[in-house]
Lab assay of single mutants.
Amino acid sequence: ELVLALYDYQEKSPREVTMKKGDILTLLNSTNKDWWKVEVNDRQGFVPASYVKKLD
């Protein structure tokens, strides 16, 4: 499943990933309501769920 980055996000820990507004990311896990695991540029990590939106 793919998600769209709604905002820029700068990683604050090694478990997170940086994304730019408009990026298309692969959603790996959305079981946590606050932090979703995504893959971007061959890196996996977490981003705030409120910063991304699922693409239909």
Results as ranks from 00 to 15, higher is better:
E1S: 13
E1P: 12
E1H: 14
L2Q: 10
L2I: 09
L2P: 06
V3A: 12
V3H: 04
V3D: 00
V3S: 04
V3T: 03
L4T: 08
L4R: 09
L4P: 00
L4S: 05
L4D: 02
A5N: 00
A5V: 10
A5D: 00
A5M: 02
A5H: 01
L6G: 02
L6Y: 04
L6W: 04
L6P: 00
L6D: 02
L6E: 04
L6R: 05
L6C: 08
L6I: 09
L6K: 05
Y7I: 08
Y7S: 08
Y7M: 12
Y7Q: 12
Y7T: 07
Y7G: 05
Y7C: 15
D8K: 02
D8T: 05
D8R: 02
D8F: 04
Y9P: 01
Y9K: 00
Y9I: 01
Y9A: 00
Y9R: 02
Y9L: 00
Q10F: 15
Q10T: 15
Q10V: 14
Q10N: 14
E11C: 13
E11L: 07
E11N: 07
E11W: 05
E11P: 14
K12A: 12
K12S: 11
K12F: 06
K12M: 11
K12R: 14
K12G: 09
S13F: 06
P14S: 13
P14N: 12
P14L: 09
P14M: 09
P14F: 09
R15C: 15
R15Q: 12
R15D: 14
R15M: 14
E16V: 05
E16I: 04
E16K: 05
E16C: 07
E16N: 06
E16A: 05
V17K: 01
V17C: 09
V17P: 01
V17I: 14
V17D: 00
T18H: 05
T18C: 06
T18W: 04
T18I: 03
M19C: 06
M19L: 11
M19N: 00
M19E: 00
M19T: 03
K20W: 10
K20V: 10
K21L: 06
K21M: 08
K21R: 11
K21P: 03
K21C: 10
K21A: 12
G22P: 00
G22H: 05
G22E: 02
D23Y: 05
D23G: 04
I24C: 07
I24V: 11
I24Y: 07
I24G: 01
I24F: 07
I24H: 05
L25A: 08
L25F: 06
L25D: 00
L25H: 03
L25T: 01
T26W: 14
T26A: 11
T26Q: 13
T26D: 05
T26Y: 13
T26K: 15
T26P: 15
T26H: 13
L27Q: 01
L27N: 02
L27D: 01
L27F: 03
L27P: 00
L27I: 06
L27G: 01
L28S: 03
N29Y: 06
N29G: 07
N29L: 09
N29T: 08
N29A: 09
N29R: 06
N29K: 06
S30R: 08
S30Y: 07
S30A: 13
S30K: 08
T31I: 09
T31C: 12
T31G: 11
T31H: 11
T31P: 04
T31M: 11
N32V: 05
N32R: 09
N32S: 10
K33C: 11
K33I: 11
K33S: 12
K33W: 08
K33D: 11
K33E: 10
K33L: 10
D34Y: 15
D34M: 13
D34V: 12
D34T: 12
W35V: 03
W36M: 04
W36E: 01
W36L: 05
W36H: 03
W36Q: 01
W36T: 03
W36S: 03
K37R: 10
K37G: 05
K37C: 14
K37E: 14
K37A: 08
K37D: 04
V38K: 00
V38I: 07
V38D: 00
E39T: 10
E39R: 11
E39V: 11
E39K: 11
E39P: 00
E39I: 11
V40R: 15
V40K: 15
V40D: 11
V40A: 15
V40T: 15
V40W: 07
V40N: 15
V40P: 00
N41M: 13
N41Q: 14
N41L: 12
D42K: 11
R43H: 08
Q44P: 06
G45S: 02
G45H: 02
G45E: 01
F46I: 07
F46C: 12
F46D: 04
F46G: 02
F46W: 15
F46P: 00
V47H: 00
V47N: 01
V47C: 03
V47S: 00
V47P: 01
P48M: 03
P48T: 01
A49Q: 06
A49F: 02
A49G: 05
A49P: 06
S50W: 10
S50C: 14
S50L: 10
S50P: 07
S50H: 12
Y51C: 12
Y51Q: 07
Y51T: 10
Y51L: 14
Y51R: 08
Y51I: 08
Y51S: 13
Y51D: 04
Y51H: 15
V52Y: 00
V52A: 03
V52H: 01
V52D: 02
V52F: 06
V52M: 06
V52P: 02
V52G: 01
K53F: 08
K53Q: 14
K53D: 08
K53Y: 09
K53A: 12
K53N: 07
K54H: 09
K54Q: 09
K54T: 09
K54L: 13
K54W: 08
L55T: 07
L55Y: 08
L55G: 04
L55R: 03
L55H: 06
D56P: 14
D56E: 13
D56M: 13
D56Y: 12
D56C: 14
